[in-house]
């Protein structure tokens, strides 16, 4: 019975991998220090982070600047943002998709908290 269940699971995994469902896609820019998000249907994606005062939302006035941390739409649905200017230290960030939906970075296993939400954390070496 166990062998039968195991063979069904292996067959299912093989089928899913064959369909590409469990085969990871290649990054568009593997070199350099970039944040990358795959979101082909999004109208806009911003990065809200400690380094840009969360898009201005924690600065005086509290207005979220729609041009702050704008990611660049690339080929095949990838959005990228160059963060090579960051100096050494820990920074929290999140993706703001379509101006209202917060999304953690799936490509980064480190997480932290900001205003009760789970966001991503990047530790930049000097």
């Amino acid at each position: 019975m166990r062998i039968k269940a195991l063979s069904v699971m292996v067959s299912l995994l093989t089928l899913l991998c064959g369909c590409g469902i469990l085969t990871p896609v290649e990054k568009p820019a593997p070199d350099g220090r970039n944040l990358i998000l795959w979101m082909p249907g999004a109208s806009s994606v911003q990065v809200l982070a400690d380094w840009n005062e969360w898009g201005g939302s924690v600065a005086a006035g509290g207005i979220s600047n729609p041009s702050s941390g704008n990611m660049t739409r690339g080929e095949n649905g990838f959005w990228t943002l160059d963060i090579s200017h960051l100096e050494g230290g820990s920074y929290r960030y999140t993706f703001l998709v379509n101006g209202h939906r917060w999304l953690r970075d799936r490509d980064n296993p480190l997480t932290a908290e900001f205003q009760g939400r789970t966001v991503s954390l990047i530790m930049v070496p000097d």
Binding site: G20, L22, V25, W38, P40, D105, R106, N108, T118
Partner: peptide, 16 residues
Amino acid sequence: ATAGMVSTGGVTWDMM
């Protein structure tokens, strides 16, 4: 535990 992936079939996975 956390895990995330974008697959070649256009499927995204995110687990916490």
